[in-house]
Measured scan of single mutants.
Amino acid sequence: ENVVSAPMPGKVLRVLVRVGDRVRVGQGLLVLEAMKMENEIPSPRDGVVKRILVKEGEIVDTGQPKIELG
């Protein structure tokens, strides 16, 4: 899985990584606000952040790609 998608609709509060960052499985990639709760979205695997496809403040839909890992 190279693309991390939104598990639920919500607002991107914070992006916790930058392009080029090495990430580990379970590491937080971003914080999504859904139903007035903050949810940290974890990396599904070890890898390197290739692209960030969302911006802080953006509203995302379920299944929308957010971060691409290499």
Results as ranks from 00 to 15, higher is better:
Glu1Pro: 13
Glu1Asp: 13
Asn2Val: 14
Asn2Ala: 11
Asn2Gln: 11
Asn2Met: 14
Asn2Gly: 11
Val3Asp: 04
Val3Cys: 13
Val3Ser: 07
Val3Lys: 06
Val3Ile: 14
Val4Ala: 05
Val4His: 04
Val4Gln: 04
Ser5Thr: 13
Ser5His: 12
Ser5Asn: 10
Ser5Glu: 08
Ser5Leu: 13
Ala6Asn: 04
Ala6Leu: 06
Ala6Val: 08
Ala6His: 04
Pro7Ala: 12
Pro7Thr: 13
Pro7Val: 11
Pro7Asn: 12
Pro7Cys: 12
Met8Gly: 09
Met8Glu: 05
Met8Arg: 08
Met8Trp: 15
Met8Asp: 00
Pro9Met: 09
Pro9Ser: 10
Pro9His: 10
Pro9Trp: 11
Gly10Leu: 02
Gly10Val: 06
Gly10Lys: 03
Lys11Gln: 06
Lys11Cys: 09
Lys11Thr: 10
Lys11Trp: 07
Lys11Gly: 03
Lys11Pro: 01
Lys11Val: 10
Lys11Asn: 03
Val12Tyr: 00
Val12Arg: 00
Leu13Ile: 13
Leu13His: 03
Leu13Gln: 04
Leu13Thr: 10
Arg14Gly: 06
Arg14His: 09
Arg14Asn: 07
Arg14Lys: 13
Arg14Ser: 06
Val15Gln: 03
Val15Leu: 12
Leu16Phe: 03
Leu16Ile: 07
Leu16Cys: 11
Leu16His: 04
Leu16Arg: 04
Leu16Tyr: 04
Val17Ile: 08
Val17Gly: 00
Val17Lys: 00
Val17Leu: 00
Val17Pro: 01
Val17Thr: 02
Val17Ala: 01
Val17Met: 00
Val17His: 00
Val17Ser: 00
Arg18Gln: 13
Arg18Tyr: 04
Arg18Ala: 12
Arg18Ile: 10
Arg18Gly: 11
Arg18Glu: 13
Val19His: 05
Val19Thr: 07
Val19Trp: 04
Val19Asp: 04
Val19Asn: 05
Gly20Phe: 04
Gly20Cys: 11
Gly20Ser: 05
Asp21Arg: 01
Asp21Trp: 04
Asp21Ile: 10
Asp21Phe: 08
Asp21Met: 07
Asp21Leu: 07
Asp21Val: 08
Asp21Glu: 13
Arg22Ile: 13
Arg22Lys: 12
Arg22Gly: 08
Arg22Glu: 11
Arg22Thr: 13
Val23Asn: 01
Val23Asp: 02
Val23Gln: 01
Val23His: 01
Val23Ala: 02
Arg24Asn: 10
Arg24Lys: 14
Arg24Met: 11
Arg24Pro: 02
Arg24Trp: 11
Arg24Ser: 12
Arg24His: 12
Arg24Phe: 12
Val25Gln: 13
Val25Leu: 13
Val25His: 10
Val25Trp: 08
Gly26Trp: 06
Gly26Phe: 05
Gly26Asp: 05
Gly26Glu: 03
Gly26His: 06
Gly26Val: 04
Gln27Met: 08
Gln27Ser: 06
Gly28Lys: 09
Gly28Trp: 07
Gly28Ala: 14
Gly28Tyr: 07
Gly28Ser: 12
Leu29Ile: 08
Leu29Glu: 01
Leu29Val: 08
Leu29Phe: 00
Leu29Asn: 01
Leu29Asp: 01
Leu29Met: 07
Leu30Val: 12
Leu30Ile: 13
Leu30Met: 09
Leu30Ser: 02
Val31Thr: 06
Val31Glu: 02
Val31Cys: 06
Val31Trp: 05
Val31His: 02
Leu32Phe: 11
Leu32Lys: 00
Leu32Val: 10
Leu32Gln: 00
Leu32Ser: 00
Leu32Cys: 08
Leu32Thr: 02
Leu32Glu: 01
Glu33Gly: 08
Glu33Ile: 10
Glu33Arg: 03
Glu33Thr: 05
Glu33Lys: 04
Glu33Ser: 07
Ala34Leu: 10
Ala34Ile: 14
Ala34Ser: 13
Ala34Asn: 12
Ala34Val: 14
Met35Thr: 08
Met35Glu: 13
Met35Ile: 08
Met35Gly: 14
Lys36Cys: 15
Lys36Asn: 15
Lys36Asp: 15
Lys36Arg: 12
Met37Phe: 09
Met37His: 10
Met37Lys: 13
Met37Val: 13
Met37Glu: 12
Glu38Asp: 08
Glu38Asn: 08
Glu38Val: 11
Glu38Ala: 10
Asn39Ser: 12
Asn39Ala: 12
Asn39His: 15
Asn39Gln: 14
Asn39Tyr: 15
Glu40Gln: 10
Glu40Lys: 08
Ile41Met: 05
Ile41Tyr: 05
Ile41Phe: 06
Pro42Tyr: 12
Pro42Ala: 12
Pro42Ser: 11
Pro42Lys: 15
Pro42Gln: 13
Ser43Lys: 00
Ser43Pro: 01
Ser43Tyr: 02
Ser43Met: 02
Pro44Thr: 07
Pro44Asn: 05
Pro44Trp: 07
Pro44Leu: 06
Pro44Val: 05
Pro44Phe: 06
Pro44Lys: 04
Arg45Phe: 13
Arg45Tyr: 13
Arg45Asn: 08
Arg45Cys: 13
Asp46Leu: 05
Asp46Phe: 07
Asp46Ile: 06
Asp46Lys: 07
Gly47Phe: 01
Gly47Asn: 02
Gly47Leu: 02
Val48Met: 09
Val48Pro: 02
Val48Glu: 07
Val48Cys: 11
Val48Leu: 09
Val48Trp: 14
Val48Asp: 04
Val49Asp: 02
Val49Glu: 02
Val49Pro: 01
Val49Ala: 02
Val49Ser: 00
Lys50Met: 11
Lys50Val: 14
Lys50Arg: 12
Lys50Asp: 05
Lys50Asn: 09
Lys50Ser: 10
Lys50Cys: 13
Ile52Arg: 00
Ile52Glu: 02
Leu53Asp: 04
Leu53Thr: 04
Leu53Ile: 06
Leu53Cys: 11
Leu53Trp: 11
Leu53Gly: 03
Val54Asp: 01
Val54Phe: 01
Val54Arg: 00
Val54Ser: 00
Lys55Arg: 12
Lys55Cys: 10
Lys55Asn: 10
Lys55Thr: 12
Lys55Ser: 11
Lys55Gln: 11
Glu56Tyr: 06
Glu56Met: 09
Glu56Thr: 09
Glu56Ser: 08
Gly57Leu: 05
Gly57Cys: 08
Gly57Trp: 05
Gly57Tyr: 04
Glu58Gln: 13
Glu58His: 06
Glu58Tyr: 06
Glu58Ala: 08
Glu58Asp: 15
Glu58Gly: 05
Glu58Met: 10
Glu58Ile: 04
Glu58Arg: 01
Glu58Pro: 02
Ile59Glu: 11
Ile59Asn: 11
Ile59Leu: 13
Ile59Tyr: 15
Val60His: 02
Val60Met: 04
Val60Arg: 02
Val60Ser: 03
Val60Thr: 11
Asp61Trp: 12
Asp61Pro: 06
Asp61Arg: 15
Thr62His: 09
Thr62Ala: 15
Gly63His: 10
Gly63Asp: 09
Gly63Glu: 06
Gly63Ile: 05
Gly63Trp: 09
Gln64Thr: 10
Gln64Cys: 07
Gln64Ser: 08
Gln64Lys: 06
Gln64Trp: 08
Pro65Trp: 08
Pro65Asn: 08
Pro65Tyr: 06
Pro65Lys: 08
Pro65Gln: 07
Pro65His: 09
Lys66Thr: 15
Lys66Arg: 04
Lys66Trp: 15
Lys66Ile: 15
Ile67Val: 10
Ile67Pro: 02
Ile67Phe: 08
Glu68Gly: 05
Glu68Leu: 15
Glu68Thr: 11
Glu68Met: 13
Leu69Cys: 04
Leu69Met: 07
Leu69Ala: 03
Leu69Ser: 02
Leu69Thr: 02
Leu69Ile: 13
Leu69Pro: 02
Gly70Lys: 12
Gly70Val: 15
Gly70Trp: 15
Gly70Leu: 13
Gly70Met: 14
